[in-house]
Design a protein around this nucleic acid. Sequence first.
DNA 1: CGAAATATTGAGCCTTATCAATTTAAGTGG
DNA 2: CCACTTAAATTGATAAGGCTCAATATTTCG
Lengths: 228, 228
Amino acid sequence: MLVANSVQWEKSIQVKHSPGGPPAMEALMTLRRCRRSEAIYSREDPVDYWYRVAWGMARKSTLLSDGHRRLVDFLLPGNYFGISAAGRRRNFDVEAVIEGTTVACFPRRRLEALADSDPEVGRFIRQVTFEALQRLQARILILGRTTAPEKVRAFLVEMGQRSREGGRGAVVLPMSRYDIADYLALSVETVSRALTRLKVRSAIVVADKHHLTIAGDALEEAADPGME
Amino acid sequence: MLVANSVQWEKSIQVKHSPGGPPAMEALMTLRRCRRSEAIYSREDPVDYWYRVAWGMARKSTLLSDGHRRLVDFLLPGNYFGISAAGRRRNFDVEAVIEGTTVACFPRRRLEALADSDPEVGRFIRQVTFEALQRLQARILILGRTTAPEKVRAFLVEMGQRSREGGRGAVVLPMSRYDIADYLALSVETVSRALTRLKVRSAIVVADKHHLTIAGDALEEAADPGME
DNA sequence: CGAAATATTGAGCCTTATCAATTTAAGTGG
DNA sequence: CCACTTAAATTGATAAGGCTCAATATTTCG
């Protein structure tokens, strides 16, 4: 069952950018395979490692004071995360979204030392952090959308762009509707309704719950920035 | 008049973090003074400089495809911005919010070269980028709030924390209500109403349009994370 | 001093959150 | 492998909250 579950996503979740860093950096890496919903790091943990998603998908979240969960980011293969300074502790939780999600772990102290001595590594870390910044800025624009269907459509376009494979407009959504709702700051019901509305309007074609295609014109509309 | 205008803010906008980088880096810096609403950089500009606010306040924004302006960030003294890789072009506009806003400009190529040769500079740049990441993540949590008064309150707390001076709970808002609205993805009217509601409930004390104080208990409530 | 922003307040409509019920899918243990 | 239990997804009805349009202060700036 678990195997079949993994197979379901095998070809769906692909690397887009930064498949790996400089060799000297990759030498520090260890791989870790995670169960579904397993924590990769938790709030209050010390910052001992920096990470990169090798396969699968992860979600960065936090529990707000009002009890609501808020998803800050979805992490796809090639995305680095948890890259922050020492001394402090984590303020977010990161969990695997799908069974078998694998992360590359880099010991922070050693990697920082390496960045000091090897300019190529230093440059690479900066580059990776810039990419994270872009992701978050793009995300803010999505959250800034006013109507729910707009938010959902922008979200689908974002996910399509971030894991571009399977051709134009194809989108894979391994996460639950609850995850999407917490990501877009909407209720699950509204997300569900927005999806059916988009389907009815033929803005999307739904293969199954986790696979859909965005129609060409709906795809064009949301071409908004993501960089500094 | 312009002078008087500057004086109005003189003691209000203070540095909190990272007053300056390593000396070798500061040697590259040139200062630039801006008029109110003057562009610091614009969309499509090449990435030739990295910046730090020295005095005043700036706003990073973009025009969405639907014609709405979206503010991605407010930039306070000590905040670095525009730090992204070469090759591409800017996707956002950055403008001075108040008359006399002064920015420190660092030529990107020379600074990157310096980061390669001087580990201290490299480390500093990483640190600064981490701070920008934290800011954006905190911002996402604010945007994720559901009700308008909650968003506004969280915004006030954020601004208070970011330019902590003038004592506990004091907040200075040099920007217009329109800026706040575009920052929180609300309409101006809703922002205005939310503020009056907070005032009526005694959650805030309004000195004048640009100066207010957050009541102690309202301040406690919103202690949500901001870091990786 | 006059013109143009900027702020605030009101009324009505529209959208979304909430509560509730049903259907579908997924995970568990025999 | 199937029945069972639990989680996930969808759909409906209702009420609250925010956006829009509109009017009126209040400031700011030329």
